[in-house]
Design a protein around this nucleic acid. Sequence first.
DNA 1: CATTCTCTTGACCAGTTGGTAAAAATAACG
DNA 2: CGTTATTTTTACCAACTGGTCAAGAGAATG
Lengths: 209, 209
Amino acid sequence: MKVYGLADKKRTRIQTENRQTIRDAALEIFARDGFRGATVDAIASKAGMSKPNLLYYFPTKDEIYRELLQNLLESWLAPLQEVDADGEPTEQIAAYIARKMALARDFPMESRLFANEMIRGAPILLDVLSRDLKGLVDEKAALIQAWMDDGKLAPIDPHHLIFAIWATTQHYADFDVQVSAVLGSDSDDRFSGAATALTKIFLDGLRPR
Amino acid sequence: MKVYGLADKKRTRIQTENRQTIRDAALEIFARDGFRGATVDAIASKAGMSKPNLLYYFPTKDEIYRELLQNLLESWLAPLQEVDADGEPTEQIAAYIARKMALARDFPMESRLFANEMIRGAPILLDVLSRDLKGLVDEKAALIQAWMDDGKLAPIDPHHLIFAIWATTQHYADFDVQVSAVLGSDSDDRFSGAATALTKIFLDGLRPR
DNA sequence: CATTCTCTTGACCAGTTGGTAAAAATAACG
DNA sequence: CGTTATTTTTACCAACTGGTCAAGAGAATG
């Protein structure tokens, strides 16, 4: 019996365990080598099983990749969704930066997987990007714009503001080698230092008051 | 006669042309698929020549990749080097952002190539990162710190400030699909809008004055 | 404990991979 | 124009690629 049927929900204990082991291994490999550069053998080896055994749980390399991206998107959109129209604007932005920063710290491989998919032109995610993501961003951009119109925030194109928050936070996951080569400090210090600096930059900027 | 000798400077017209054609093709492929995902066949095909023909000009896939990274680094460090200790601080920062933004606009594939190398842990560039790059960044960070100590800029960890400028500008090259899926506007508008927004963010921040 | 269902393995396959060798075609040059 | 050096092609190779298949090992259940 094949295990990966899409509507199939009755899973054995072994199935549940092994599928998760495979996901974990695949995330590492895909995040580092990209879809084209990753091999089923490498994933199987990291998962501690033979290639045919892995392919018993997932039918194709493609299917593993798609499932990883699928799982990723939910947790990826959450921090922006939580931006609250009823909150205090600068507080909401600061909290959003903190949430994204925590995500970069705790799930760096997910961030790199996403970056890889973007760099190669988002062949899998393009649809969901221009539908769900665009919808959410437009909605929150409108909210931020309203805050600006009320004079509660300085007027800055809210779309680019959101991009800037994405870019700066994800940078610490995607370019971790570079950051650590330059800073040298340990991982915890880097992320907490980054969080402090980014909050200052986004809220107050560089020009002295 | 082999063509790729390192100390070999006497190049035929055909050699010069074909080596450049290969570099251009390889940049596209490596930037999209990463080192592991790129194939010599794909590069040769994009360059309009056969695989053995390509390998007459570059001995290995590795060699092409290394040469691209080599060429890249010079133009990559330049904008930061140009930050001038004798200039007006906020002006210098703004000009640096503008230079980096122009680079992202005009050389997006170079940016993606670099991003790919970082994501996979910088196996080729790690040394030069922790030597040359760290040296340059530390030097300019000290300069920025001096400006802050003089009260000419608000006090923000200058290393993280530099990272933030890298992240935000390169984002528009590396994540171009995402940005264009969300914004939809044409490329010129995206980049000029980004430049305006980023300058405001970095100089004045979000908190209304 | 026998039987059925699940899981794992080894052997295999066709296509692709990075790269080589030698010959054929072309260009450069005296 | 003949000769030499450069460039391109054709044929090839061993290793690797994603994936299949059938048989065997192991677990679950009556």
